[in-house]
Amino acid sequence: MDTLVHNPFFVEVPDFFGISLEALFAAKARGVWEAFERGEIDEAELAARYFKGDRPLDLTGLRACMAEAYRFLPGMESLLAELHQAGLEIHALSNYPQWWRMIEAKLTLSRFMSWRFVSCRTGVRKPDAEAYLGAARALTQPPGGCLFVDDSATNCEAAEALGMPSVRFVDAPSLRAALVERRLLGA
Results as ranks from 00 to 15, higher is better:
V5I: 14
N7Q: 05
N7E: 14
F9K: 03
V11C: 08
V11N: 11
E12T: 14
P14V: 05
D15S: 12
D15F: 00
F17I: 05
F17L: 03
G18C: 07
I19D: 04
L21C: 01
L21I: 02
A23D: 14
F25D: 10
A26M: 04
A29H: 08
R30A: 14
W33M: 13
W33R: 11
E37L: 00
R38Y: 07
G39H: 10
E40F: 03
I41S: 06
I41C: 04
D42V: 05
A44T: 09
A44W: 02
E45P: 00
E45V: 02
L46A: 05
L46P: 01
A47N: 10
A47M: 02
R49T: 08
Y50D: 04
F51N: 13
F51E: 10
K52E: 14
R55T: 14
L57M: 10
D58K: 11
D58P: 01
L59M: 09
T60G: 10
G61R: 10
L62P: 00
R63S: 02
A64I: 04
C65H: 09
M66L: 02
A67C: 08
A67K: 14
A69C: 09
R71Y: 00
R71D: 14
F72S: 08
F72G: 03
L73G: 10
L73Q: 12
M76C: 13
E77H: 10
L79Q: 06
L83C: 14
A86G: 09
G87I: 12
E89I: 03
E89A: 15
E89T: 08
S94Y: 12
P97Q: 02
P97E: 03
R101E: 14
M102G: 05
M102C: 06
E104K: 15
L107P: 12
L107D: 09
T108V: 06
L109T: 08
L109M: 14
L109F: 15
F112T: 04
W115C: 01
V118K: 11
V118H: 12
V118Q: 11
S119K: 03
C120F: 15
R121P: 00
G123Y: 03
G123S: 02
G123D: 05
R125N: 13
R125V: 04
R125Q: 10
K126N: 09
P127C: 07
D128Q: 15
L133Q: 11
R137E: 14
T140A: 10
P143T: 01
G145H: 10
L147K: 08
V149G: 09
S152T: 11
A159C: 10
A159K: 07
L162W: 08
M164C: 10
M164H: 13
P165D: 08
S166V: 00
R168A: 00
A172E: 06
L175W: 03
R176Y: 06
A178D: 15
V180D: 12
E181Y: 00
R182Q: 09
